[in-house]
Design a protein around this nucleic acid. Sequence first.
DNA 1: CTGAAAGCGCTTACAG
DNA 2: CTGAAAGCGCTTACAG
Lengths: 335, 335
Amino acid sequence: MKPTIKDVANAANVSIATVSRILNKQAGYSQTTKEHVMGVIAELGYHPNAIARGLVSKKTKTLGVLLPNVSNMFSSEVLDGIEQAAHENEYSVIICNTDRNGRRTLDYLKVLGEKKVDGLIFISEALTSEYYQAIQHLNIPFVLVSSMSYKYQVPYIKVDDKHASYQAVTYLIEKGHKDIALISGDIDDVLAGIPRVEGYCQALRDHRIEVRQELITYGDFGFESGKECMTRLIQTDQPFSAVFSTSEEMALGAMSVAHQNKINIPEDISFVGYDNTRYAEMSIPPLTTVAQPLKQMGNKAVEMILTMLETGKKAQSNIMPHSIVERESVKSRTK
Amino acid sequence: MKPTIKDVANAANVSIATVSRILNKQAGYSQTTKEHVMGVIAELGYHPNAIARGLVSKKTKTLGVLLPNVSNMFSSEVLDGIEQAAHENEYSVIICNTDRNGRRTLDYLKVLGEKKVDGLIFISEALTSEYYQAIQHLNIPFVLVSSMSYKYQVPYIKVDDKHASYQAVTYLIEKGHKDIALISGDIDDVLAGIPRVEGYCQALRDHRIEVRQELITYGDFGFESGKECMTRLIQTDQPFSAVFSTSEEMALGAMSVAHQNKINIPEDISFVGYDNTRYAEMSIPPLTTVAQPLKQMGNKAVEMILTMLETGKKAQSNIMPHSIVERESVKSRTK
DNA sequence: CTGAAAGCGCTTACAG
DNA sequence: CTGAAAGCGCTTACAG
């Protein structure tokens, strides 16, 4: 069997207490015994049992992350950042694919509670009061990524959606576009839906361009819905020279439909996306897009959890900077 | 504080042993006491501590998965399948981003060992003898996904790479193509590199088409390398009407370069990819590709682990079926 | 500088 | 059908 702390204590002729102290770099042993014990540990190939340690220390050095979809670039890149920062700080991460399903989420919350994770990260999930209660009960730090709550005071980290959207549309206007269609996510989405629509409207108004409802369509952030929206847009027969899509996937869907309809990008219609996942540069043509620093947001999220773990206080929320990454999907009509 | 098993035992006036039995659905209590205890549990909002349970039962109900890259569609989709099957069987999954780095991988293996995961899954990682030794030492079931080992008898689950590649090229030949370029992954890659090149060569030979080295290029499976390969291919000045790329990302990279060079797809050059991640259908034009059942492979991998956990015996390896998914990136030149 | 002992929250023989 | 007790592998006062 695998050696335990007892085995090394016996072999080294010391008590398990001093082995423990040495392992945990606490004070209370001479340099000599330390060296001797370390030798025995190496010799025996001893590794501490994190489960036993967790039982007494009440710390598991693991974080739970709940996300709506693992095979989606947006969450993947945030997850990448989380995993990286976690590993650097010697934490593990357990992933939970909620599928945006309430029961599933609550179920995961139960499991994570039983497994005693030290902290929780929600990626782009709206925080229902049911979730909030459950987490409150767990009594561990948690943060929201690309989401926030008006009702509860929960630390979050996100981009200013309205502002980002405003800038994207302004960018298009500055490139000489006036007839700009919008492909938005869910209208009911208080976080990634409404604010981005507002940013769009505001930008138009600030430039004295009329907001036309026929040019606004609503999808669900996914590829298929982007296709549907674009199809509807084409069918309205309203002319437009550019489309701003509030997710990368919808932008790609819209571009596919454009391509099917022999619409040249950007000659006939310009496109601006949102997110800046790896696939923005992989599309044809490469997508100009509003960039969210996804990986950094993931890093930051674990930093926040760690701070909360250390200080016991709520971390401060962070609004991350966004930017426009110019590629080749927008045609300038200014000259 | 959170109630423990002791609290419910006290409140219910029974011993912790019977509470434990009820919780674990073992025999040894009357229906009456069961109901009574369940009532107390609900009332107290008691949840068992999985860490304590794990310490005695030697089972953590968690699996470790090591993958070279989390923000990559291939691994993401396999991971999705793993997470799903794990959750259905009440297992959690800890993700470890190895970055194809030996030290990192070994480090993760150490951590996973200390955290006592019940099983291990490697996604498209070559099994070095160093890894093998380390895992052997852990003494837990593990399986390889989209990989295998000639040296060690480790259960794996993958597609027949050579055959899949053979079929893709044959498909192109049947569509009337003779000058077919190849964009392969690493030449040194015994698993996803060489076999696919062999399949390509074999298909050509079987159809009495000369294999020309100038038409074979090597990348690293990534987008950028796909671009580079395509650039080189164009520069050789050798004519070709189709390219087969052994990864989706490289195919997308190659298509981007084609687009930049005003090469029409598929009118001028046809493309066939490999993997069939979600992005195959999202490209312009939608990519015809060799499909690997990624999500199913993930499902299957956990099934194998569970079987090994139950029977204590090595699971049988699985060769999963591949297929050609026809989309719009190949032009037929037969008529 | 070091050790004996209690305890973390469970499960599992063992005894009745 | 039920309980007392040992034990899983650690950490942490406490005492010396």
